[in-house]
Nucleic acid binder design. Structure first.
Lengths: 212, 212
DNA sequence: GTCTATAGAAAGATAGAC
DNA sequence: GTCTATCTTTCTATAGAC
């Protein structure tokens, strides 16, 4: 059972995630976050040394979750990363706040002075390396219809996903992100089986309590 | 010959463009812009009613320039839009401030309350419609290697360009944007001839004066 | 057209009571 | 662990002199 302090910190993190998604980091004040977490800004700063510290620790939190998530696809064999990608896109399409958080924060974080710069830099490194390997392994078995370096295939699919998110936010409902990514992979000779959402995302029920 | 007021406004617009590129709209203050344009913030607000007004008028300014630019490709025939795209990517690759401005502002502008929301919404509408038509015309002559709707081809190429910009900013020098876009078009059956930069970008000399 | 001065709001952060 | 109170800075915008 988590202590009172841990529960408060979790409340703060969730409130901050919501607000950073809606408005970005720069435009969100510590007071706003504290209000949504139902305490004063001074109370919040007892748990997090500064606004920057709060963001950095949130990103570390999200990084852990992502790592846990990615592991669920380990038995999809050589194409497990592609299955994971489709799953991420589907999850994004079902939760715009995830997309907003990513679009807003990654754009702000292109400034090396931004507290999230290191996080996004590392993140791209990791994802591109992993996808590069995945494409290389796949192409070794089934060469691509058009000649393309595995590294470029990795850069391309990541860019496509990021760019689709921007369009999807600015012109809601105008883009079928999952379909676009699926077709793009298909054009590279990668086909991903339909995933069973009921298995992969078991009943999200953050607001339900189990009966007494 | 422009009046003194017009010259001052132009100085302000250029300073604002630089700063919005470097830090985004939200994180830039009217005082910062005024300082770079070498006047006080009160002096600046004599020319522009508010910070929002300044951004809106800057974007209108940029829209005009873009329209003028695009017209130069009118004699490239059916593929003129693809030639223009390659030119835009090349220009971006040579001037990171253009890319920063776009990435920062478009991400902020996904909020419907942002003063640039209408601009980006219109911009995507216009570009996607034009590219949709261009792909449709091209595919009518030369069907794509993989079956793909012209609308999806348009969405895809725009998403790729936007996403590449993000990677290019976060991991400088790691991405060959022009090459990536060229290969992507190529995979759709579109090949763009090498453009002669000397013709298309005649001696950029904003700081040179003609001899007396 | 540009300035100084200032209003009025909001930001991040700290001190210290409880 | 959370609060009130406050410091200090910075912001957008306005008023009015020159």
């Amino acid at each position: 059972m988590p202590s009172k302090g841990e529960r408060t910190q979790r409340r703060i993190i969730l409130a901050a995630l919501e607000l950073f998604s809606e408005r970005g980091f720069i435009a969100t004040s510590v007071r706003d976050i504290a209000a949504r977490a139902e305490l004063t800004h001074a109370g919040l700063l007892h748990h997090f040394a500064s606004k920057d510290d709060l963001l950095v620790r949130i990103l570390a939190f999200r990084e852990e979750q992502d790592a846990i998530n990615a592991r669920r696809f380990s038995d999809y064999g050589i194409d497990r990363l592609f299955a994971w990608i489709i799953d991420v896109v589907q999850a994004n399409e079902a939760d715009s706040s995830r997309v907003m958080a990513f679009v807003r924060l990654s754009a702000e974080a292109t400034d090396p002075g931004h507290p999230a710069y290191a996080y996004f830099s590392r993140r791209y490194d990791r994802i591109l390396t992993a996808l590069d390997d995945a494409f290389a392994a796949h192409f070794a078995v089934l060469p691509p219809p058009h000649p393309i370096a595995s590294r470029d295939a990795a850069i391309g699919i990541v860019a496509l996903m990021d760019g689709l998110q921007l369009q999807w936010l600015i012109r809601p409902g105008s883009v079928d992100m999952t379909g676009m990514v699926r077709r793009h992979l298909c054009a590279l000779g990668v086909s991903v089986p339909d995933l069973d959402d009921a298995v992969l995302h078991p009943t999200p029920s953050p607001d339900r309590r189990s009966s007494p």
